[in-house]
Write a protein that binds this DNA or RNA. Structure first.
Lengths: 337, 337
DNA sequence: TCATAATATGGGAACGCTCCCACATGAATC
DNA sequence: GATTCATGTGGGAGCGTTCCCATATTATGA
């Protein structure tokens, strides 16, 4: 294998303790010793062994990210992938390495993986099962949850204010004069979809409008294809009493629905307006670009890392739950220029 | 901290050696001892310490993935993110955990990170600088390169056959009767963009056509916005001698260009056809859906893991370079239904 | 000049595991 | 009855660090 601290010590003519001190910067070392050690390190291209370090220091400087996945997409997911990006960026600056795992329903395997590898902390993304969370909670590893929920009330949770977002879309569409609105509601077990959906409907009611039961299309999953199917499978009904707007609880569903409408020859937004939620990258790339609600994905990931770092360092972390103000992003799918 | 193998030994009334044997399954153990040990493990919720294991076995069961990034997007990148997804999926089944890092130009830091963490192997994605590759090559860590290149000829490289793909698009557009084609050429330092671009032009020439120098718009980067800018910044010129087709060396550029065309009121494909390359998820979600060349992103990631695993286990790996047959995916952006 | 502090260095234990070796038992073989 | 072999067990070294402690040297101040 590679060189060890002892090889460096031998070559520099000092003890391994001195080498250790030079490398870590802890304790006293003479300029002379420093020079010799540094030179030896350079010559041998020595890299400290992180495993051995972790062994004695009881700190791996690794954090684990577990992303729940229902089916395939994980890292490349336009929403979770962004959060992951932010995590990767932020951890780098704090000196952590990141283990990324994904988790299928009910599996404790990914958690075990992380626990055995002894990460310093864990970031759980999306709706992991309570079983998994409970399991992780059993070990004393610090962790927090991003865009998911748990009954445990002492766990940091980072979420978007989805109620507020749902209301923003409702107000926007209502102001534009839409009175008959079709809603494509994503998986209602999922906190975000549920909140977006219910707050949207409530706000419409408050404003004096109404969402008809028959205008609500539920979708058990929330992909582009689901959005596409939601409209095509209800097409007869939909086309007979064409609403003037469609709201989907995330952008993917909205984009799928929009493709159906475009294929059928509807002009957007003249014939029908479409709005989504998440402000994923692709929402602005469609034609027309999609009106949506911006969720601060990057900030979620960043804050997750910052807070986890505090948790790991045993510093006090006061707010147990963080949520971000969503922002309505008006594009041409609801309002032509 | 948590329990150790000694706690288990004490509780089960055996020696730590026996516990170790039960856990690993190596060596002889009596049914009786097994039962006692397993029970103790269960009762204490013991998890073997991966760090200590790695220390003695000299195997961490971790592999590192370094993705080159020019600017921001990394994990969420529609192309590299997919490869990462496949890596994550495949490593799980082989028992590895994955460190993910990103690398800015010229930075050796991420490599150092991985090296110090003592990963068993490395997957390098995209065009990492030769400096970084050379640096990694210095240490004896097994590694391979996905969708990138190096001068070293003993390094496994997994790539798409971009020449073939470029030719496929050329043939498709030529067959459809397009004789005046605008090409948006992504960063030419990048192997893929260069090969796609040159092979496309060559094939057009072979077929008897010609790509005019003035119809080539170079773009130093390859995002949606770059595609958008490529057309808007050349708009006067472009609109005067409108070509009948646009080919961009990746889907993002193509989608950006397509948005400009749609904004300007062009009908696609009737007025102008558009083709991209990569078959990213979003290529089929645009309207009209984008004709493109499918690159087997998932397979690239999967094969990378399989081969790296062999490398790590010191098994023989014969083909030094793998490339995949690209497949033309014809959608409505070139051929209306 | 002698205590005291600051600076500098080396030795050795410890982290939690694996694996080698020594040893003990009982069955099988000669 | 002695020798071999399969089965089972425990002790101890070692993986490459960090960190504590002991010790040595030099500087500081009465």
């Amino acid at each position: 294998m590679g060189y060890t601290i002892i090889d460096i010590a031998l070559r520099a003519g000092v003890s391994k303790s001195t080498v250790s001190r030079v490398i870590s910067g802890n304790g006293y070392t003479s300029k002379e010793a420093q020079k010799k050690v540094l030179q030896a390190i350079e010559e041998l291209q020595y890299k400290p062994n992180g495993v051995a370090r972790a062994m004695v220091s009881q700190r791996t400087n690794n954090i684990g990210v577990i992303i729940y996945r229902q089916h395939h997409p994980i890292a490349s997911h336009p929403f979770y992938g962004k959060i992951l990006d932010a995590i990767l960026l932020k951890t780098e600056s704090l000196g952590y390495s990141v283990f990324v795992t994904t988790d299928k329903e009910m599996s404790l395997k990914s958690a075990d993986f992380m626990l055995e590898k002894r990460v310093d902390g864990l970031i759980l993304i999306s709706r992991l099962s309570q079983e998994v969370i409970g399991y992780i909670d059993n070990f004393k590893v610090p962790y927090l949850i991003v865009n998911g929920t748990t009954e445990k009330d002492d766990v940091i949770q980072i979420v978007n204010n989805d109620q507020k977002g749902g209301r923003l879309v409702a107000e926007h569409l209502y102001e534009l004069g839409h009175r008959r609105i079709t809603v494509i509601a994503g998986p209602q077990e999922h906190r975000s979809h549920k909140l977006r959906f219910t707050s949207f409907c409530e706000r419409i009611n408050e404003l004096g409008g109404e969402i008809l039961k028959t205008d609500i299309y539920y979708s058990p999953t929330s992909t582009f294809d689901d959005g596409y199917k939601a409209l095509t499978s209800h097409w007869n009904q939909f086309s007979q009493q064409t609403p003037t707007a469609v709201f989907a609880t995330n952008d993917m569903l909205a984009l799928g629905a929009m493709q159906v409408l475009l294929e059928k020859g509807f002009r957007i937004p003249d014939d029908i307006a479409v709005a989504g939620f998440d402000n994923i990258d692709y929402s602005r790339m469609s034609y027309p670009p999609l009106t949506t609600v911006d969720v601060e994905k990057m900030r979620m990931g960043e804050d997750a890392v910052i807070l986890l770092d505090r948790l790991i360092k045993n510093e006090h972390v006061s707010p147990i739950s963080i949520d971000y103000e969503p922002k309505l992003v008006i594009r041409k799918s609801t309002k032509g220029s």
